Simulated assay, not measured.
Amino acid sequence: MSAVVNVAIPVFAIILAGYLAGRLRILGDAASEALNRFVYFFALPPVVFLGMARRPLVEILNWPFIGAFLGAMLAVYAMAWAIGFLLHRERPAVLSMQALNACFANTGYMGIPLFLAAFGEAGLAPAILATVIMSAVMVGLAVVVLELVQSAGNGPGRALLDVGRALLRNPLVMATVAGMAWSVAGLAVPVPVDNLGSLLGASAGPCALFAIGLFLAGRPLAADLAEIGWIVALKLLWQPLLTWWLAFRVLPLDPYWAASAVILAGLPTGALTFVVAQQYRVYVERTSAAILASTVVSVVTLSALLATYAHLTP
């Protein structure tokens, strides 16, 4: 229970503060976009870079963790495609977005701040690795599918080229690559760079959480509740359950990394799905509804996961 009081309540309280700021019109849509850009381009990349650069690469690239976290995510992605096709007979672009919403965890904006609060900087490695997986693998997969669907006739080469360009422009991916290179080189981070990154990174947690609330304040719940219901159930129940089975029963993971995989899998749908939906003009309103509903429900489910695993230490 102390994990819920000490970690979950402050985390969700900051999200609530952002939501109220948006609903009361203290801050508007322009502020939401500006704050999101600050977090995405300036606050989170230093956290990721320092988290990678300060640790040996072998300590970060935990392959059993990748297998458990990514394996469960891809399984849920496939399940969502099947359910969406059987229940709604939607076109492939919509099926792709339904699947993305059902498995895409909010590891960057919510996972990293949550792990900072719960486990400190020493426990950040799983959250950083999960964020890389979400940004590079799942966004890449979604973009490939949508490009192939919407650019039928242009061939997969153009789609893969667009994906490559998008990843090269992704600050979280680039911060990860830079941090890994620094770690492999065995270099110490210069004190001014360390201090600058620490100062910017200190703002990542509260700003990212506040930005989630501000973003949700402007999103209507305009969707079929039954459809949103099965998407949220896959995201907050089935994905952590599958991850738990892989992490604790199948793959050789130590308790902290196994628990981290389950907690990260239990995060609500990430806001980047809305960015993808807007970019391709497909499933936009229902994506915003899935983000809002999963975030609200995760107050209960994520608190339960933290209460179960927060006693573990890295």
Rank of each mutant, 00 (worst) to 15 (best):
L234Y: 08
A223K: 05
P220K: 05
S198H: 00
P240I: 07
A208C: 05
A202H: 06
W230K: 01
L209P: 03
L214R: 01
P192I: 12
V189G: 04
S198L: 13
A211E: 05
A223N: 11
K235H: 02
L196V: 04
S203L: 15
A223S: 14
N195F: 11
G213L: 02
V191E: 15
P240L: 01
L214K: 03
A222L: 10
S198C: 07
L214Y: 07
L225T: 13
G213W: 09
A222W: 14
S203T: 08
L216Q: 05
L216K: 01
P240Q: 12
L216D: 00
I231K: 02
R219Y: 04
A223V: 09
E227M: 13
V232P: 15
I212V: 14
S198T: 13
D224K: 06
A211D: 03
D224A: 08
P190H: 12
A211S: 15
L241E: 09
L234D: 04
W230R: 03
N195P: 00
V191F: 12
I231D: 08
W238D: 00
A202N: 02
A217K: 05
L214G: 08
L236F: 10
I212W: 09
I212Y: 01
L241T: 08
L216E: 01
K235R: 11
P190A: 07
S203G: 13
D224Y: 03
A223I: 07
Q239E: 11
L225V: 09
L216Y: 00
A217W: 01
G218D: 03
P220Q: 00
A202V: 12
A222N: 15
L236N: 02
G205M: 05
G197L: 10
L236S: 10
A208H: 06
A222F: 03
L241M: 14
G197Y: 01
G201F: 08
V189F: 11
L216R: 06
S198K: 12
D194N: 14
L242K: 03
